[in-house]
Amino acid sequence: MIYILEDAINGVLMGSIYGLTALGLTLIFGVLKVINFAHGSLLMVGMYAAYWAIILTGVHPYVALIIVAPVMYLFGYYLQDIVIKPIFKAEKDVREPITVIIVTTGVWYILDNLTLLIFGPTYRNIQDNPLKGKMLEIGEMFISVPKLWGFVTAVVTAAAVYWFLQKTRMGRAIRATSLDREAASLMGINQFKVYNVAFGIGTATAGIAAVTLVPFYNIFPSVGVLFDIKGFIIVVLGGLGSIGGAILGGIIIGLIESIAPQFMTATWTEAIVYGLFLVVLFVKPSGLFGVKYDW
């Protein structure tokens, strides 16, 4: 019994990190109405950025946030501004612009292959970092310390993004644009600036997720794909565009992944995850949590 509890806790912790990786995906979809297929690749770029920042400076992994989050923000901001915006403008009357989705797929391929070219297929990890392999002992349970840090970071990041959307001038402009682009323009909101900022924030959260992962996760050029697929499932479970839903959706996946193997062969857990995904799509396509958008 105690093992199930231990697995459940570790599952919740890991799941919240999954949720954090999907946060940007759901935010970008909510505002641009575009599925960003490059999101996993942005996470991967963030992991390499974190890796090198930590390796080269020797700081505590989480200190890398100071560099990685703003760098990723700018990367996302200008990726949207330079690569995606022109295509968006060409299709500006379309509500869910399909060519933009094709472009994000292109960005995914380019980023992954560029990384492969530059850093090679090697699996990297940060061997000596103070979080690596650390366990917290509570009674007979062992809780992963790096995942605990990730959990706290995920909750704080989601709360911060939520606060920003609720309480700041730009946050309100982002919400308004996500609800009605044309009406937002009539309020004097430059929708393309809003898209840049939303993409920047979404990419920065991928960077933050990357920092939480590198203390215990392998880094390689196609690592993003694993999180991409989970991300899509999480976003659908939590409700497209829902910030809190992304974290909760992630936690559900984390729980299934950690508890299910106790009762069946591990390969079945994926089947359960996809099964749940399909059930939600059929029964409640707006997701398990909240209204269409909860912000």
Binding site: R172, R175, A176, L179, D180, A183, L186, M187, G188, I189
Partner: peptide, 28 residues
């Protein structure tokens, strides 16, 4: 400034937030 046909409110935002968004432009 235009008040569009069919109101076009930001439906899932509060009344107050709708008003505040109205003042988004740098003059207001």
């Amino acid at each position: 400034v235009q008040v569009p046909e069919g109101r076009r409110l930001f439906t899932l935002m509060s009344v107050k937030d709708n008003l505040i968004v109205g003042a988004y432009n740098s003059r207001a």
